[in-house]
Nucleic acid binder design. Structure first.
Length: 587
RNA sequence: GGGGUCGUAGUUCAGUUGGUUAGAACGCCGGCCUGUCACGCCGGAGGUCGCGAGUUCGACUCUCGUCGGCCCCGCCA
């Protein structure tokens, strides 16, 4: 037997017993006489003592030990002498008196210390990810990740969901993102696509009658990376038959509550608050608001129309909006600091940022002269301005106003310390529009995806006023993070065809791309719907990581490179020949 | 495709208007040390300043290019 215990689990219960441990040398403290080794495995650290009087040969051997050597120790567990306990570690009351030492493997000096509080550049961490992953804080994240997926699986199993697999080598799903393509050797010139999500297959599983499906599944999208976006990521994907929105929200809410409570002892309100898309956008400027703090957006378009400030008036007359938010207590900002805010606004698409400072008896700013006293009072009332506040305004197309102010709201929320990091606030966002209009391509596109069902009461609008049609779609947002989203799908072929027509997808195109789904829908497809959670984002949220790279064992850099393996890499000419692929000459 | 930011011992960083031999801490190597736990003390090794070109008598420092990490826009749920 290689070992009898994990290092981190040795305790007073094991006193006087002989144990065998195996692990890595975390640290060596060689006093010439006594030598101490901190021995580490995934469960923690225990101190091993080499005493020349107890076992001279072993003590001599211990001299050769270095950081990250892999060793096996046989010894007796002893209570540490009075005054030498280490209260800062769980095993600090005991130590192991070494009787035998076997060096299982030596180690080169690692490029960085295997230590939690070591501040190492991310590039180096990813190049030596196996060493980075040895750090206990990093390991805790992945243990959390494991427990979370187990907890979710447990809940879904209890609720009679079936875990079923769908193919990775498949056909491109029409969800907008670029596909990763895989050439087919047996069918030269033809390509599989890696799935962006199992969307179509899970719907087909519903047609097959599996009724409740889930999968913890890798998804692939060949788009640019961000802190919260990787080319491959994990989704908790699920689908149910014979349900309506309320059913699915209710069971997903139960799951979220059960899992967050079990894994992190986070308790959620019952039921979760809800907000329509329209309300979220109007109050926060985004469909995934962080509701942990205020600084809500207020509409001043009505007033702007009447004032003498040309910038405001013109924007409104052209159909745009003027909205503002109250940066509480920031009237003291210098011109330069306001300029920084302005630049932030401009970067996000605004043409400028208007501001006013609230003083004891007036509003102060270069632009206040364009507003009558009554109008100034109105502004103060709408934005609840009190002396010491800074009022910020953006005038532009409504979408730009929302983009800019929601960004500003978040950065001000952080700056003003309005966000309590210990709080978790869930929110259902509902009543999404079904479609948006793509100005560049001059056509409608599906906001969620083209299989999302329209609200029954809006069906008539599909022909008269498509933009007003709401979808049976919903998102779960926690602390401004979009954790998951889903919809009730279209289960009748006539409706699906109508939607395709609206989206400008021709019959032949639809048949070629996902004819199999349209066909399946004609063979008794039950009403169904589902949801998908961004599992990596969920782990990041629960572990406080600010990037999902922290919660993925082997993530890729922003350029999509794996620094450890150097993928993607060149391939043999022979491989390409077999696939009948020719490379263009490098430019 | 675009904007921003960073790149100096193994690591994290400092480096004065462009000036002689590029520093610190930790780590590493050697020695001493029987109760340390970020052990201590003494000594030592370790650098193509990301790479390339340019300006200059002289470049870690200035300019241009390039490569790479990160953040963001576009893109993508």
């Amino acid at each position: 037997m290689f070992r009898t215990h994990y290092c981190g689990e040795i305790s007073l219960k094991n006193l006087e017993t002989e144990v065998t441990l195996a692990g890595w040398v975390h640290r060596r403290r060689d006093h010439g006489g006594l030598t101490f080794i901190d021995l580490r495995d995934r469960e923690g650290i225990v101190q091993v003592v080499f005493n020349p009087q107890l076992s001279p040969g072993v003590h001599q051997q211990a001299h050769a030990l270095r950081a990250e050597y892999v060793i096996q120790i046989k010894g007796k567990v002893a209570r540490r002498p009075e005054e030498t306990e280490n209260k800062t570690i769980p095993t600090g009351e005991v130590e192991v008196l070494a009787q035998e030492l076997r060096i299982l493997n030596r180690s080169k000096t690692p490029p960085f210390l295997i230590e939690d509080d070591e501040d190492i550049s991310e590039g180096l961490r990813l190049q030596y990810r196996y060493l980075d992953l040895r750090r206990s804080g990093v390991q805790r994240i992945f243990i959390l990740r494991h427990r979370l997926s187990q907890s979710i699986r447990h809940f879904l199993n209890q609720n009679r969901f079936l875990e079923l697999e769908t193919p990775f080598l498949t056909k491109s799903t029409p969800e907008g993102a670029r596909d990763f393509l895989v050439p087919s050797r047996l069918n030269p010139g033809h390509f599989y696509a890696l799935p962006q999500s199992p969307q179509l297959f899970k719907q087909i599983l519903m047609v097959s009658g599996f009724d409740r499906y889930y999968q913890v599944v890798r998804c692939f999208r060949d788009e640019d990376l961000r802190a919260d976006r990787q080319p491959e990521f994990t989704q908790i994907d699920l689908e149910m038959s014979f349900i309506d929105i309320e059913d699915i929200l209710s069971i997903m809410e139960k799951m979220t509550k059960a899992v967050f409570s079990e894994i992190c002892n986070i308790q959620f309100p019952n039921p979760f608050p809800r907000m329509t898309y329209a309300e979220a956008v109007s109050r926060f400027g985004t469909d995934r608001p962080d509701t942990r703090f205020g600084l809500e957006l207020k509409d001043l378009s009505g007033l702007a129309e009447r004032c003498d400030f040309k910038v405001f008036r013109t924007v409104v007359s052209k159909g745009g909006s003027v909205k503002g938010l109250n940066a509480k207590g920031l009237a003291g900002l210098s011109r330069k600091e306001i300029e920084t805010l302005t630049n932030e606004a401009i970067q996000r698409g605004a043409k400028g940022l208007a501001w006013m400072k609230v003083t004891a008896d007036a509003l102060e700013a270069p632009i206040t002269k364009f507003f009558s006293v009554a109008q100034q009072d109105e502004i103060k009332t709408i934005l609840k301005g009190e002396p010491g506040d800074l009022l910020l305004f953006v005038a532009d197309k409504t979408q730009v106003v929302h983009d800019v102010l929601s960004t500003l709201r978040l950065s001000l929320g952080k700056r003003l310390n309005l966000i309590d990091e210990k709080i978790f606030e869930p929110l259902w966002v509902t009543d999404f529009p079904l479609l948006e209009y793509d100005e560049a391509e001059k056509r409608y596109i599906a906001i969620h995806h083209p299989f999302t069902g329209p609200m029954d009461e809006d069906l008539a609008l599909l022909e008269s006023d498509p933009m007003q049609v709401r979808a049976k779609a919903y998102d779960l947002v926690i602390n401004g993070v979009e954790l998951g989203g889903g919809s009730i799908r279209i289960h009748r072929e006539e409706v699906q065809s109508k939607i395709f027509a609206l989206l400008g997808i021709k019959k032949e195109e639809a048949a070629e791309k996902f004819g199999f789904l349209l066909e399946a829908l004609q063979y008794g497809a039950p009403p169904h719907g589902g949801m998908a959670f961004g599992f990596d984002r969920m782990v990041a949220l629960l572990s406080g990581a600010d990037s999902i790279r922290e919660v993925i064992p082997f993530p890729k850099t922003q350029k999509g490179i794996c620094l450890m393996t150097d993928a993607p890499s060149d391939v043999d000419a022979r491989q390409l020949k077999e696939l009948r692929i020719k490379k263009e000459r490098r430019v």
